[in-house]
Write a protein that binds this DNA or RNA. Structure first.
Lengths: 247, 247
DNA sequence: CGTTATTTTGACCCATGTCAATACGGGTGG
DNA sequence: CCACCCGTATTGACATGGGTCAAAATAACG
């Protein structure tokens, strides 16, 4: 389960510190003494290309991570939600820009300091590795979405992954909050805003989802949706595939 | 700069070993005592989903790394060429399958052993980190290609990256070897084989490239090609972009 | 309540996919 | 060495998913 550390660390915030109890190692804990910064929607946390001086822990809110091509096209590489960290695996300069989608509260830590502390801790190092592996896994998954799924499959996969983030039962109806705009979704899925809209409308017509309002969608028939997603989902614990490859 | 360590390590290969001179740390060196294995074209090195027991160092040849969706669609996540390592950042099970494209010679190392050695070495650890950062960077770059470039831009970007791998002058004509089949290219670029062919034919007609034979292409006008690639290329040392984002 | 941004829908078009035929190349056996 | 065969690549004709352009509807915001 991806978010085990996150769950543990956020819980720990409410646990009184008993000095004799060994702390459970967590990367998130490194940020606790840092001041909390606030960003209003649209505010930039950092820009692609700038020297990557910090690593961030998003306390609450949602950020979009994106790059702009020379001709203005935008590619949203992903989003960062409350509880997640950004920049853990950053190279010398930020590989993308980060902007607040909603009001964001976060903490930052100097990259050098972060690296030094983690590198010096036997318990933290594996956590960093795991984190980076996870990040790579997410990127690979998204590559598949972009490379091989149809517009409808992409949108459904997106909705399902959003639903999964809520931690709700993957069985029946789930209400999904989408603070993210249609345009952000489009740029994330490699589609246009119109296609995203139309696809959502179609899913609505077909009764698979209910659109409460612009930022709230209810997934009615998870089973059908998962079929529509083209099997990209929940690959994590899917049985090994050995289908013969085309050559 | 992503590849600073890498450059250093490959340079070290040509430095005579004086026993009193401290060895220059390199991840590749961990494999030298392992036996070399050979795979014929089409041979599988490992399968997606299998327990990730090993880490690999490709000595020579070319591998394709891919996943198959439940309905048979294939997504090629990337290729591994001589000199490169695969699996450094692998989680518990292989996230994709690896097959030899050409005859491949490689060495393997138990993942546990690899991790233990690297984790125990102050000089190796940063190399691993850098390697993983680089890998993530490659994935991000490819996400952009898949999300936002046209068919022609994708093919050109692919050719250019292949050319860059040769290390040749990025100025005038470069001959590029493509052991990879059109189908592999298509599945890598999120296109169909026909579109890849047509695009290559068009580039040929326009005089931008010359097709020596199926597996050799000459890039005639690098400048024009780089323009066609949509600016995805050489992003590494491009000036920071601060173009206003659409909202 | 206007004013403006975002989303949705419509009409149309084009890049890319699909289906099918042909051409090419590289190996094999006679 | 040649004829054949089969896998790969190329080209053509056609279909269509998704892009583009434009307008209307809805929601957010003073």
């Amino acid at each position: 389960m991806y978010s085990s550390h996150l769950a543990a660390s956020s819980r720990s915030a409410s646990i009184p510190r008993l000095s004799l109890v060994p702390e459970i190692a967590s990367l998130e804990r490194l940020f606790v003494s840092q001041p909390v910064e606030t960003f209003e929607p649209g505010g930039a946390v950092f820009w692609e290309g700038d020297a990557a001086s910090h690593v961030f822990h998003v306390h609450e809110g949602c950020l979009r991570l994106y790059r702009i091509l020379p001709d203005g096209r935008r590619a949203v590489m992903g989003f960062a939600h409350g509880g997640e960290m950004i920049g853990v695996p950053f190279p010398a300069s930020y590989p993308y820009s980060a902007e607040a989608v909603t009001k964001v509260r976060l903490r930052r830590l100097g990259r050098g300091r972060f690296n030094a502390v983690v590198d010096g801790s036997d318990s933290l190092r594996p956590l960093l590795l795991a984190r980076m592996q996870q990040e790579l896994g997410v990127a690979h998954k998204h590559m598949i979405v972009l490379a091989r799924l149809s517009a409808e499959e992409r949108v459904v996969a997106f909705l399902l992954s959003a639903a999964r983030r809520t931690g709700a039962e993957m069985n029946h109806p789930v209400a999904v909050e989408l603070p993210i705009s249609r345009l952000d979704i489009a740029d994330y899925l490699g589609l246009t805003i119109e296609t995203v809209c139309r696809t959502i409308s179609k899913l609505k017509r077909d009764g698979l989802i209910t659109v409460e309002n612009r930022h709230t969608v209810i997934l009615n028939r998870m089973g059908s949706l998962e079929k529509l997603a083209g099997g990209t989902d929940e690959v994590d614990d899917a049985p090994p595939l050995r289908i013969a490859a085309r050559h």
